[in-house]
Nucleic acid binder design. Sequence first.
RNA 1: GGGCCCGUGGCCUAGCCUGGAUACGGCACCGGCCUUCUAAGCCGGGGGUCGGGGGUUCAAAUCCCCCCGGGUCCGCCA
Length: 573
Amino acid sequence: MIEVENTIKEVIYRKVQEIYKGDVGDIKLEEPPSLKLGDYSTNISFRLARILKRPPKVIAEELVEKLKSESIPYVVDIRAVNGYINFFLDYNSYAKLGIDRIIKEGENFGRGRDRDKKIILEHTSANPNGPLHIGHGRNAIIGDSLKRILEFIGYDVETHYYVNDMGRQEAVVVFGLEKFEIDRDKKPDHAMGEIYIKTNKLLEENPQLEEEIGRIMREYERALENREDSPIVERFQWAVNYALEGIKETLNNMNIQHDTFVWESNYVRNGMVRDVIKRLMETGNVIEEDNVYKLDLSDFGIEKKLVLTRGDGTTLYSTRDIAYHLDKMARCDRGVDVLGADHKLTVQILNAALKLLNSKTPEVIFYEFISLPEGSMSTRRGRFITLDEVLKEAERRAIGEVERRGVAREEEIEEIARKIALGAIRYNIVRVSPEKPMVFKWEEALDFEKVGCPVIQYAHARCCRILEHAREMKVEDRELFNYEMTDQEKILVKTLLKFPKILEISGESLKPHILANYMLDVAHKFNSFYGNCPILKEKDNSILHSRLKIVEATKIVIENGLRLLGIECPGKM
RNA sequence: GGGCCCGUGGCCUAGCCUGGAUACGGCACCGGCCUUCUAAGCCGGGGGUCGGGGGUUCAAAUCCCCCCGGGUCCGCCA
């Protein structure tokens, strides 16, 4: 618990001041590798050793003597070990307070105070020219998990899906729709993907058609600038909305919903792109080169120059992106984008331009690609694995597993399997640190046997079952934790109470994988407790009652934690 | 060619920002545990030059430099 940690830190700081008045920086509280070494420790003696020119061990012993004269709440013992100063908690009172708090706060355990800060979080933003593949999935899963975490710790979060409707790829689709008939029987995004792939093939074989694409793009942009409701606008809108319909369905199946869909074309229509270009022209960093105006960003250490408009006067993605971000950053306290690592240079340029326009810049989470064992994915070549097929295959396998275990009624199986399948997919992606490249392998993504989320959901199911049985037993209320607790109990209680701090770190550092890894930790600690400490079979009523409270608290933490990862708990499996 | 990212036991992965106690887990492997709360589990065991080499430090997976391998970016594409 954060209060206990802060108190310990304060006391250490005071005592250190007694032997050394200078600045020693923040006191860092660490966790010893084993319970036998205590619950918290500090390495302050090592840092003081140099300054005071005395061995760390001696300093540690001296500090321990001083610390022992203080009475620190929930701390029963302080020892000097190898230069470290180790603190031992009084688990009887610590567990009583902590478990009681978790149960009292329930689904709000871990929730932060309202920060009165608005965050706009943009994620997924896949081009509406085909179905989402697992690469988009990494983006969406990281983004959605983060949205849930940030909201829970007290931010007002609005999610954006930035719809790229003005790119070449969308013009290809619009062109393709007049050449090929769309398959109305297929899911819309898949049908649109087919059109896109076929049209690209057609263009490859007939390069002279390329001019058509350019013409369509110019026509669309002209219509937007003139705010016409011409047929070309309708064609683009139809195509984009049609694909988006399918994309939204997929996202919905993954428990992901966006608050706002922002269309790129909106910024051409409302004149903001023209305005941005005009303002950038006035910065004095513009040069003319190859008959086109470019923004020189060498002041920002960027070699690449930003082309402001094409030779034919039409706008480019980058300037429209600047307009979007300018608008977005003005509407929030913090802007967060989830983007593929291939956008790193783009973002540098974007941020430089935003600074020139005196705007805040977004914080960006970059994630590396998910590739296939046979190489990288390609939307254009149709070489990718869609989220839809992963979802479907995961459910198929999960149904088999649930049936095999035989704990669910026939009519429950599908629903349970769906939760397990989605959990496995979301978890296996979110648990990996985003800067690590991933290789998609079916066996790994959908391994229900041991790895990942099923273990967490299973621990939760065990909690549910135990509590169910306990209700039938009518256990008397007794004073909690008035016995010598086992190591497994202590470790579990301590782990559960870390939840709020984990959320804070995970949210503030924009790293949902920290929460994901913690959840597995909770499950392991619970399983160890479950395997070593009798609960319902415990004869001592006081211990039985206390252990049930630990189970209840575990159930709450798992539910809250998985919910923030967009994963549901089946309750039985 | 230059910039950025990754490289942790056979495989996957945490820790790296903010340097410290035997490098967290999982898979696979070996040995125990289901007349006992769901064995998707528990207990124990073997397995590591933290890509390589220098450096800084009392102390380096962690900080600095060089190198190797992989990815990615360097469009009047998005």
